[in-house]
Design a protein around this nucleic acid. Structure first.
Lengths: 222, 222
DNA sequence: ACCTGAACACCGTTCAAGT
DNA sequence: ACCTGAACACCGTTCAAGT
């Protein structure tokens, strides 16, 4: 996973940026729980306390990670073809672009939601969304509502609750107590038997919710 | 905060339910970070290891806490007047009822989102929402989409990102880099100067997003 | 059936240094 | 300027018991 533990001389100097990049790679490879100061230092072939020279504490590392993620989003979006279209399609493609990055870093949504403040990279991303909506003829009051209505969907994710565990192991035992839920699940499963992602295709659901909101906003704009 | 530390004989026996109730009270009073096994045991005037007789581990305590919260929601909703109305208003009032409980336990959303599985109380709550929608004429496929579109909003909350910090301390420094965001914030603040909750009234925004989704679903039903 | 202390394997971080 | 080990104050949990 890394070249740590060798005692060959380091090619690149350790910097704040390298620490953050390594932290993201570590979370990708071993899960967010593996991202401890000790493990991160090990990955960099450094003593634990050396990390504190580059960043003040673990909170700063988590803040920095969010910057890295939104940096990746920005990169992915500048590669995107211009695609003139309406404000709605433009917003939609930006958000789906952000989502593609989130899918590469499944732990990122939880970290983003845990941060108390907004970093520059994230603010820039939001700023671009607002700019698109304003150019599209939405006034700032409606844009403000829109950002709240979108919530984390603006960043390309929704925290999927419960159903994401793939059908619900324990649900069968409670079947008698939750007839409507059981009926819905069996029916939806039946309607879409060859769905590769199981009965619950998250990408489809994400776009459904996103379009529901965008269409509603478009209607309010008029 | 409690009657711990006295050595008067305990009135009520320690049970799983008392442990969970105490855990909720502790999180309410001292924040979710204060909910450690040691602190919880102290609150109950118990040795730490005694907790493990009533519940297998901390995960089970967090699962149990979610059950307690949805128990409170159920209680609050049965007190609610019947309010016949459309499926939309009925769903709306249930969700706003759930939200009122969430507001009493600000730490609850994060815990709910962190749980990998659905407990019975939560499943019952979802089941009731589905029942209402089905009675209102939505088919199960649309209901399934609806639950995903609502996301955590179905439980009465959205994880508010960034702006919730109350105007953004650090935003002023980045003003030049985020002109659209700054313009939106100043304009919205100007339009609503006497807002007691600051420029960003979460209850209003929550209902805006909820209604946007419910109205869109109603349109799809027809 | 109900409770317990000692000990273990972890955390993030302070301190007082080293080169 | 860059890095470090020892130590501290925490975690959740295992174990082997006590009554």
């Amino acid at each position: 996973m890394s070249t740590a533990h060798t005692n060959a001389p380091r090619r690149v100097p350790v910097t704040r940026e390298l620490v953050l990049r390594t932290a993201v790679d570590l979370a990708d490879a071993a899960g967010i729980d593996a991202l401890t100061m000790r493990r991160l230092a090990e990955e960099l072939d450094l003593g634990v306390m050396s990390l504190y020279y580059h960043l003040p504490n673990k909170e700063a590392i988590l803040d920095g990670i969010v910057d890295v993620i939104f940096g990746e989003i920005d990169e992915a979006l500048t590669d995107l073809p211009p695609a003139p279209g309406s404000w709605k399609t433009e917003l939609r493609s930006r958000i789906l672009g952000a989502r593609a990055v989130m899918l590469r870093h499944p732990w990122a949504p939880a970290i983003i939601e845990s941060r108390p403040s907004v970093g520059l990279a994230m603010a820039r991303y939001v700023d671009a969304l607002i700019g698109i909506m304003h150019s599209g003829g939405l006034d700032y009051d409606l844009i403000h509502h829109a950002m709240h209505a979108l919530g984390s969907r603006a960043y390309g994710f929704v925290q999927e609750l419960g159903e994401s565990q793939g059908g619900g192991d324990g649900l069968e035992q409670m079947a008698a107590e939750i007839p409507n839920l059981v009926e819905m699940l069996t029916q939806v499963r039946h309607d879409d038997p060859e769905s590769t992602l199981g009965w619950c295709d998250d990408q489809v659901e994400f776009e459904f919710g996103l379009d529901l909101i965008l269409d509603g906003l478009e209607r309010l704009r008029r």
